[in-house]
Amino acid sequence: MVPKLSIQNVSFDYGDGATALRNISLDIMPHELFVLFGPSRSGKSTLLRLLNRLSDLLPVGQMHGRILFDGQDIFARGTDVFDLRRRIGMVFATPTPLPGSIYENLTYGLKMAGIKDRRVLDERVARSLQQAALWEEVKDRLADSAFALSGGQKQRLCLARSLALEPEIVLLDNPTSGLDPISTSIVEESLYELKQQYTIVMVPHSMQQAARVADRAAFMLDGEIVEVGAQKDLFVYPQDKRTEDYVSGRFG
């Protein structure tokens, strides 16, 4: 099978000499839920932000290697980075609604892409909210401010906002941080549905969450990938001593 994303020998340095990523190679397959886990500052979020080139916003940083999306190098000259970000959506650790209504939040990306047809917008709003398991709670108050939602609802709104663009890949950067256990399980449950349609790359909130949701996972430490494997291999029969120590809770 052809990988959806192929990360090839990627290294990333911040200007201050700190190496954030060291020679990362990974293949992410279509319709899998791939989890990047490891202790803080191991480079997970940095890697995630390279995948949709949000890393472009960093004032400093030097990237080496290639990232292929459907076989195309996303850092190649001439890449439409705005189109890339529509095809590879992202949800952040802190639920961040934009000022405005729920409806405006969901249609913002579409409108920026030039889609104005009210029927298309309405239909995308409804579908993305259903996929993010938020439709029943907000369908009667789409014109209300997005800030009036609870924390868990806000995060599902952010998920729906990236889904409204009908991306191919969804990057989830610790999407359940700060959510209560019930909201967390609602988000986690929706992931099973989502990967039927999307490829998901996720940085989990905890190792336990990684073990719960992953199809495959990579254990990262100090900017390197220690071990990659299927959920069972990594969490039950880790090969590397460091993975075993982390998974069994000896550090981290």
């Binding site: 529509r86 961040t96 934009l98 990306g109 990236s162």
Partner: peptide, 19 residues
């Protein structure tokens, strides 16, 4: 964060500033 979110849904820099 508003800028980051705006970019993450494919808005250009000017769209982000403008909207």
């Amino acid at each position: 964060a508003f800028r980051t979110v705006s970019y993450s849904v494919g808005a250009t820099r000017w769209q982000t500033i403008r909207h």
